[in-house]
């Protein structure tokens, strides 16, 4: 029971991070039908930007308030990562829009290689550790020396995720931008004819997705305290799995999928074997796609003859 509770907390934390990344996949897939392979690496880049920002604030500026540091880092990472993603869309994807279906995918794979190696060259191949940032924990219960703890940083992650998701939800559901997005999703040509600026809408989709990935990046850095240039791929694939599990194209699905993947991963590690935790995540992806291709909250696709 105690182990279960602890794993539940850890799983929800991890799931929040996956969910945030997954939204980027699901939004981009929804609007232009493309798997943005570079999204995982955009997440990694955001974690590096956060690392630089934290170092700058702590060692150069000399800020000591951890919450101020986190808030500034969050904003800086979101802005810069959004810019990176905007540029990627503009340079590597937009020229290929409306052409051959595989071209943007290959371009995205190339971009993924480019980003991770760019970071490797610019920042070096070694792990970048930060001193632990938020170390306080709340002990929820204790039996026989086994403590079930809820760390402050876990609370921060869940709260930030929840708040940002709410804001993002409002953005997509209630604002003209959200409406334009949904219009482009339905029929891009028609939306253009009705005066929606399709290019701008798609670019903004990439920026929003990247900004949420940046939040995930900051949280990741704070939670694990270390980041490496190769850290984009596996969380990227898992977040994609989350998006698929929840039903690709569905925003609540992405979050639900993220949380489920996070829970499955932590429980699998705790109860079965930690070595096979990634195998478990990938197997879920395969099984979902085979038996429930539309995902948990997605709409089934009817084959048009």
């Amino acid at each position: 029971m105690d182990v279960f509770l602890q794993q539940l907390i850890n799983g929800l934390t991890l799931g929040s991070i996956y969910g945030l990344i997954a939204i980027g996949y699901t939004m981009v897939f929804g609007i232009i039908g493309m798997v943005n392979f570079a999204h995982g690496d955009v997440f990694m880049v955001s974690a590096f930007i956060a690392l630089i920002c934290v170092l700058l604030l702590t060692t150069v500026v000399g800020l000591s308030s951890i919450f101020l540091i986190l808030a500034i880092t969050l904003v800086v990472a979101m802005l810069f990562t959004g810019l990176v993603s905007w540029t990627i869309e503009r340079v590597a994807y937009r020229p290929l829009r409306g052409s051959f279906r595989l071209a943007p995918m290959i371009s995205a794979i190339g971009m993924s290689i480019l980003l991770s190696n760019f970071v490797q060259v610019a920042q070096g191949p070694r792990n970048k550790p930060l001193p632990p940032m938020v170390t306080e924990v709340i002990v929820i219960r204790e039996t026989n020396g086994y403590e079930v703890t809820l760390a402050y940083k876990q609370i921060i992650i869940m709260v930030v995720t929840a708040v940002l998701l709410a804001g993002f939800w409002y953005l997509v559901k209630k604002t003209p931008l959200g409406r334009a997005q949904r219009a482009c999703e339905q029929d891009r040509k028609m939306a253009a004819l009705l005066g929606v600026n399709v290019d701008q809408t798609i670019a903004l989709t990439f920026v929003i997705g990247a900004a949420l990935a940046a939040v995930a990046g900051v949280m990741y850095l704070m939670y694990y305290g270390v980041v490496n240039f190769a850290d984009g791929f596996v969380p990227g694939v898992k977040a994609f799995t989350a998006a698929v599990l929840g039903g690709i194209g569905s925003l609540p699905g992405a979050v639900l999928g993220g949380i489920l993947i996070g829970l499955i991963e932590t429980f699998w590690s705790a109860y079965f074997s930690i070595e096979y935790k990634d195998v478990a995540a990938f197997s879920i992806l395969v099984v979902t796609l085979i038996f429930l291709p539309q995902g948990l909250l997605g709409r089934p696709e009817v084959e048009k003859v």
């Binding site: 340079v91 590597a92 020229p95 290929l96 052409s99 051959f100 071209a103 943007p104 290959i106 371009s107 794979i109 190339g110 971009m111 993924s112 290689i113 480019l114 980003l115 190696n117 760019f118 490797q120 060259v121």
Partner: peptide, 21 residues
């Protein structure tokens, strides 16, 4: 040699944009 994969990724993007087919 560090730049090898960097150039490789860049080339992939560039060739795709240049000749999508």
């Amino acid at each position: 040699s560090l730049y090898r994969m960097l150039i490789f990724g860049f080339a992939m993007v560039a060739v795709m944009v240049w000749r999508p087919r």
